[in-house]
Design a protein around this nucleic acid. Sequence first.
DNA 1: TCCCGAGTTGAGCAA
DNA 2: CTTGCTCAACTCGGG
Length: 531
Amino acid sequence: MSAVGVHWFRYGLRLHDNAPLLKAISSCSTLIPLYIIDTDYFTPSSCGINRMGFLLDSLKALDEDLREKGSKLFVAKGKPCDILRTIIQQNKVEILTFERDTEPYNRAMDESVFSMAESLKIDVSALWGHTMFDPEYLLGLNNGSAPLTMTSFQKLMYVTGHPPKPLDPPGKITPPPEGPLRCEGVHLFPNPPSLEDLNEFNFKQEDKTTWFVAGEKEAMKVMEKFFAQKRRTANFEKPKTSPTALEPDTTALSPYMSRGSLSSRLFYHRLKDTVKDFKNASKPPVSLQGQLYWREMAYLIGFSTPNFSQMKGNPICKQIPWQTGPDAKILLEKWESGQTGFPAVDAVMNQLKTEGWMHHLARHLVACFLTRGDLWVSWEMGRDVFDKHLVDADWSINNFSWHWLSCSAFFHQYFRCYSPIAFFKKTDPNGAYIKKHVPMLSKFPAKYIYEPWTAPKATQEACGCVIGRDYPKPMVDHSTVNKINMGKMKKAYDAAKPLDRGKKRETDGKDSPAKRKQSTLSNFSEKRINC
DNA sequence: TCCCGAGTTGAGCAA
DNA sequence: CTTGCTCAACTCGGG
């Protein structure tokens, strides 16, 4: 028990339900709690100020929580593997603990860390903890593959039963080394850094606009405040919540879940306890428990699907000829900067920039608009924009959702399409949400708020906003371009029809020429395989 | 092999 | 106001 240990925080920025941290505490006499800002993962082009600001605030909160228990957080910047090696060698570290992760980038890093630890002959404990269940356990229960529908995922959850109970936070934490940490050549911050301390990003604290308050304690507060509304918790139905509410109509816990400031197991069991007396409580997939299932499913699919973050080489992703070149870049830029000319779309994109968060259905609207609905831009490009600005940026869930919305996987009814004009009228007929996030339009009457270009010129003048001068004209004609895109979707789907249906198609004289052509090709392929 | 029902969250219209 | 139907158009999975 006289060993020096390092607990490397990545996600799992919390003290409760943190198995690798508890392991470290119980097995060493000096403990270095360490976070490394990975400068390959976070770059100025991939990470915006609100996302980074929320992360840094989470680190600051974690440092304070550690200090209350006799420890502190060391924060370094650079390449995690190099930094870990230096700190391990220079401080005679014998034990390394961290939470395992499902993202390909982090898994590759885990492998390097494992082999580095082996060569340095130190003890490593890497444990799962970001999801309710170990992903390897779930895959094992399901013949080694991830369910691709919620129905089949729910069956899997029926087999597992409840997830394990969350672990209690440690009472006391093994103290850090006395005196400064030995880490020659490592960029170690004297304290958890501020935005200004990351000089390559050129961030200014006053440009951070998200209202989310970071940290484990805040996460608990937000969660308990929501669960205190027992009926609301029990009757929660996600599709019935409002994407245009000025205050989040959902729990808004996603930023804490994504950083691991809140454990999904703790949320699960607190939820179960809260709704236990309600006979007619809502059920998955629409209930709050269902929301945890969606998260778990996205993580499992992200874990087990090759090339999940791209279309090419991704076995579950429909191959669709999206625009990706310079033309797409121009469209993407208008979309990202809230200049599409559709107030609903622009409001959501502005909320993304200012708050770093939008309601799930608002994300649907703009994702559909960018891809299959209107602009026909690759979902991967939209995914990157979300990832850059969201305070709840989450690799698995973000990729999962972009598959869904672009009808690339999981959801296939491409003829069901969100209207950038009609969709928000259901929950916000007066356009209060639009007026908040596109202030230029705040004087427009409700009648024209979703289609300001249809307002008479005199009205536009009176509202102090002339369309085409002060606010853009709509960049596409939605109903025209939408019909064209559905045709393209049909073509892409036809081209992807399974080979083994060829025979039936060949004998079916009523099939379209496109289908017949496909069937001929299919039979040909089938024969070749059989030879 | 084929058929059919289900699929968290569409729009537009009629009743 | 809600509910139900149609719209050209889907795939998956279970029986």
